[in-house]
Design a protein around this nucleic acid. Structure first.
Lengths: 233, 233
DNA sequence: GATATAAATTGGTCGGTCCAATTTTGCGCG
DNA sequence: CGCGCAAAATTGGACCGACCAATTTATATC
């Protein structure tokens, strides 16, 4: 019964807590966070872990550090003020923002992968795809497969900048909405689209690969859009 | 006489040293780096600083960490083995790889900025452009302007993923080739292209913005290609 | 030869020190 | 009383050395 593959780092707890506080409205735009030394007691973590949490929150665009002054909440997006039962607006806005970027980035990466992929890249991707089919019902397995697939695609571009971008994409997915895969119900479409993408890359058809990636991410985007719409007026 | 704006962090020294060692061939693909505890003495830095250096080198795709085993050199690109007078191959291959990615990413970002930019974004970019013109001969000022301009462009997309990508691009530029701006002699073209890009974004012409960005980065890419070709047989 | 054990290595965390930037306080002076 | 400037307190930034855990590799033992 392995519930969590990840070792649950301390800083993640802090990130979650602050993120939730912003979602609930306890921390609003412009507000100052408590000073480091106070938060150390508050969360019971060391300064190093705290700083790591801050660096993530800064990367997410949620807070801003001003040396000598303090840390302040930055509005990442403009989202409705008086939203009841909180937690949704921030999460959804961040995830949609991420997906909007992926609608542009992923087709470009797929196209580049189609141009430069080597046979060994393709066998690796092939292996990942079969592993994906094996256990489509397990949520964490699906998430893991998705990550592996897109990382393999990125490394097939032979360009580490794309690898880093995909790594960043999935870091953000995990940081902002771990349960996102629960919303994507259509498991078969998930696997089918990955396979279509694989086929296009195998024959080095950049245009078809780009189109396949577009279809894939567009469907996900629309699905999430629909799911989030149910939470908001 | 301010030679370095940046405070010269400890880990940067380590990154440079290891990068140079790889360039010189002292460390080749597959070689194991000395263990952390040994490098602490070797470089006279703490473990924290060392780990920070490793994280950068890992991001650059130069090394790979295997828990319980050690850290190993990864070939980032295949580049000529017996290259004399070293230092060039790694640097140039990494920079060209970065620029190849930018040829794809930057037009996409420019196009998105054209679609979503607000008036306040444009005034900020306008200010950066006039500042750029003011001191075109100073190398560090030009580098700073370039960074500011592209960061402003990224934030005009209203999407923090693009902001992070541009931040990453310039982190890599600084990490791999700080003197890169010395190779880009045509100062006027530099400023002109930025202005053309600005114009396209102001009128929200996504296609023109994308084209302008392509022209800009393509010229830089060709210039660097030419400059590096002189170092290699 | 197989297995248990020990050693070596990286990963994560902690609690400090010192420094730079900023803000706040307080004092002197007009 | 009000203003301005300097000292002090507050805050984040960088760094250090130590500790223990997880994992891999080497070694010893049967």
């Amino acid at each position: 019964m392995e519930t969590d593959v990840r070792p649950a780092r301390k800083y993640e707890k802090v990130v979650g807590a602050i993120k939730d506080a912003i979602s609930r409205g306890e921390l609003a735009y412009g507000d100052a966070l408590p000073p480091e030394r106070a938060m150390i007691d508050q969360f019971g973590v060391s300064r190093g872990s705290l700083r790591e949490a801050f660096s993530v929150l800064e990367l997410l665009g949620l807070i801003e550090s001003k040396p000598g002054s303090g840390r302040f909440v930055r509005s990442p997006h403009a989202f409705p003020e008086g939203s009841s039962a909180g937690a949704v607006p921030l999460e959804s806005s961040a995830v949609l923002e991420l997906m909007e970027a992926r609608r542009i980035l992923d087709p470009a990466i797929a196209s580049e992968a189609a141009r430069r992929s080597s046979p060994s890249d393709m066998t690796r991707i092939r292996r990942i795809l079969t592993s994906t089919r094996e256990n489509l019902d397990d949520l964490t397995h699906r998430a893991r497969s998705d990550f592996d697939f897109h990382m393999a695609l990125a490394s097939a571009t032979q360009n580490f900048l794309f690898v880093n971008i995909v790594r960043m994409e999935f870091n953000l997915i995990m940081a902002t909405h771990e349960s996102i895969y629960g919303l994507l119900e259509d498991k078969c479409a998930f696997a089918d689209e990955h396979e279509a993408l694989y086929e296009a890359i195998t024959v080095h058809d950049a245009n078809r690969a780009s189109a396949a990636a577009s279809l894939h991410i567009d469907r996900i985007y629309r699905t999430l859009l629909g799911a989030f719409a149910m939470f908001q007026p």
